[in-house]
Simulated scan of single mutants.
Amino acid sequence: MRTILQDQTLKALWLQELDQMRARVAQVRTAIAETELNDFGTQELAYFARQSGMFSLLPLTEGQEKALTAEHGIHVVKGGRVNVARLGSGDIGWLIRAVHAVRAQA
């Protein structure tokens, strides 16, 4: 890190990459909220679009977390923590459908 921050060219490149990643995560968060509204007509995950950062908490019980993993292959950390930054555009609808499916079982 010291090497990057002390070199103006490397620092500028790093800051550019950081901005690109922030923009991508923000885009994923917006897509989650928009996809849920368009596909389900609900806004249970609309808060994703108002947050920032790599992770968010899904509104799930412990049983729903287990069902998400067992039935849909989506692993979350206890407490419903999901890595938003790792989601690709093809993952968003899949995640939302799975969350709605396990919440409907409750």
Rank of each mutant, 00 (worst) to 15 (best):
R2M: 05
R2H: 12
L5K: 09
D7K: 09
D7H: 13
L10C: 03
K11N: 14
W14H: 11
E17P: 02
E17K: 09
D19Q: 10
D19F: 06
R22T: 10
A23I: 02
Q27A: 15
Q27R: 13
R29C: 06
R29I: 14
A31G: 03
A31Q: 12
A31I: 08
I32D: 01
A33V: 07
T35F: 09
T35V: 14
E36R: 03
L37I: 08
L37V: 05
L37K: 13
N38C: 11
F40K: 12
F40G: 06
G41A: 01
E44T: 09
A46L: 00
A46E: 08
Y47E: 07
Y47W: 11
A49D: 08
A49H: 05
G53Q: 03
F55H: 14
F55S: 07
F55V: 01
L57T: 10
L57R: 11
L57E: 10
L60Q: 06
T61M: 03
Q64C: 05
K66T: 15
T69W: 14
T69D: 14
A70S: 07
E71W: 10
H72N: 03
G73C: 03
I74V: 09
H75G: 09
V76L: 10
V76K: 06
R81G: 02
R81C: 11
V82S: 05
A85C: 08
R86C: 03
R86G: 14
L87D: 10
S89W: 01
D91P: 01
G93N: 07
W94L: 12
W94A: 10
W94F: 14
L95N: 06
I96V: 13
V102R: 00
V102G: 00
V102M: 00
R103A: 04
A106R: 11
A106F: 04
